[in-house]
């Protein structure tokens, strides 16, 4: 069997799980703060808000460190979504819609992954912007008003949370779809050489008949 490649470095793995934990906490506390009866995840508003306000700093630091690390380790070459990556999308879509059997070889990450990971960094920025405008309502009240007011900010903040929920759900689903090797690689750092991150339809099953 193929030997294992050192796929995810230790700092990348630590940052992944720290950021994952923070996003998990921010989302659950956020939903609770918005509507504690529909999302009864916590014992009280006080504790939920405290967690939210601590995790909001940590996620910002986490994302900044991740961006810095990707520059230092040069792994932004693999991570950064570029215009040319758009060309890779049709094949990706075909694969996920079961129109083709296998993913083309995109390198370490496919365009979908790159897009998603980059999107999160941007989303965190927007969440931080709207969130801080609500957290320090008097600091930039004029700017907030110019951009639509705190009520609009609350709506945007809340709806972006759902973008997170949807995309994170997708991320988790696809990781598990890749199988234990994929999930394990984010823990141990090693991934078997020659394996694909996503399953292929080889050898033919039902899809051949289609």
């Amino acid at each position: 069997m193929a030997r294992d490649l050192y796929y995810h470095t230790l700092p990348a793995r630590i940052l992944h799980w720290v950021n994952a934990a923070n996003i998990g906490l921010l989302t659950t506390t956020g939903l609770y703060i918005r509507d504690p009866e529909t999302f009864p995840f916590f014992a009280g508003m006080d504790i939920a808000r405290k967690i939210h306000f601590i995790a909001m700093y940590l996620i910002i630091y986490g994302i900044l460190i991740r961006i810095y690390y990707s520059y230092v380790s040069q792994d932004y070459r693999e991570l950064l979504f570029r215009i040319r990556d758009i060309k890779g999308f049709p094949a990706l879509v075909k694969y996920y819609l079961f129109l083709s059997k296998e993913l083309p070889d995109y390198g370490k990450y496919n365009p979908g992954q790159k897009f998603l990971y980059n999107l999160w960094a941007v989303l965190v920025f927007f969440q931080a912007f709207t969130g801080f405008a609500l957290y320090f309502p008097n600091v930039s009240a004029g700017l907030t008003r110019m951009l639509g007011g705190p009520l609009l900010f609350r709506q945007v903040h809340f709806l972006l949370t759902w973008v997170f929920i949807v995309t994170v759900a997708l991320h988790i689903y696809l990781s598990f779809l890749g199988g234990w090797t994929v999930v394990k690689s984010m823990i141990t750092g090693y991934f078997p050489e020659g394996e694909h991150m996503q399953p292929s339809s080889e050898p033919a099953g039902i899809s051949e008949k289609i």
Partner: peptide
């Protein structure tokens, strides 16, 4: 709220359907 919860539900349905598709495709 409706938009948010609707998005969440749509995701759940979509992912389940895709999972089923994976089984059917033998992936």
């Amino acid at each position: 709220d409706a938009i948010g919860i609707g998005l969440g539900a749509a995701t759940a349905v979509g992912l389940t359907a895709h999972l089923a598709g994976n089984y059917l495709a033998g992936r």
